[in-house]
Simulated scan of single mutants.
Amino acid sequence: MSYSLYQHQSISDNTLDLPTGKVVCIGRNYLDHIRELDNEVPEQALLFMKPATALVSLDEPLLLPAGLGECHNELEVALLINSPIQRGDDINITEMIWGVGLGLDLTLRDLQSKLKNKGQPWERAKAFDYSCPISRFIPINEFHDLNQLEFSLIINNITRQQGSTAKMMRSIESLLSEITDCFTLLPGDIVLTGTPAGVGVLNSGDKLALTLANRYKFGCEII
């Protein structure tokens, strides 16, 4: 199966005039997820990246990698960057973020565990092609407070993940500031803000329903 070329889309089905950039991911930003995997609480935000080739629209059926062990869901609130953000910038969310959506940080858990045990980077388990299915984006002005967003993942009519950005260990503003202490965010980049508890195995035939802010609904099927 080949996917169509990914482009950022709005909730109104318009193609956005923003390039397809990198995906910056935040690990261990929800305490319940840290506990479920028995990980250490990080002193700084745990940052890793996925390349643009990881992006695929959630409007398309998902195909999991074959022969690489368990692939897990990690549902996250996604921020689409609208203007450059550099070290030392004052964070103005309404100017710097175009909109908000949902993303899946697909993770090859068996492979990640092996890499972690060897002290090696996670890219082989996190950054493979199409490892970041992403929804259409809702304009920033549709949200009152990005630090109070509820979101959920239902698989085969059973709730798998349910979270709120109010329970993040770091706020949206502090995440953007900490990221840009290390590297610049550019228009078209996406920031995934971390996943709550409830990660688990995905299987062919699973039907996924994702909800953001109790209003916006997305869905896809694994083939």
Rank of each mutant, 00 (worst) to 15 (best):
T94M: 10
V100W: 08
D59S: 15
D110A: 06
V56W: 03
L31Y: 12
N117K: 15
V77D: 04
T15V: 15
V41H: 05
V77P: 02
A78K: 03
N92W: 10
G67L: 07
K116F: 02
S57K: 07
V100G: 05
T53W: 06
N117F: 08
V24A: 01
A52Q: 09
L18E: 00
L37W: 07
Y30T: 03
V100L: 08
N39E: 13
L5H: 14
A45W: 00
L55T: 13
R109K: 12
S10W: 10
L46Q: 13
L47Y: 13
P84W: 05
D13T: 11
V77L: 10
T15G: 05
V100Q: 08
L37H: 12
P42R: 10
L62R: 10
S57F: 03
L5W: 12
Q7N: 13
S113W: 09
N39A: 11
L63S: 14
A45H: 06
G103S: 12
L58P: 07
N117P: 04
D13F: 09
G67N: 13
S83V: 09
I93T: 10
I81T: 02
T107L: 02
M49Q: 13
G27I: 02
N29I: 01
L111Q: 10
P65S: 06
G101K: 05
Y6M: 02
N14T: 14
N117W: 07
E70Q: 15
E36R: 11
L47G: 08
V41F: 08
K118P: 02
E60C: 12
R28N: 11
D59K: 15
L102F: 00
I93M: 06
L75A: 11
V41T: 15
R35Q: 14
N39R: 08
V23T: 01
D90G: 12
H72E: 11
L37C: 10
A54E: 01
L68M: 13
L64Y: 09
I97N: 04
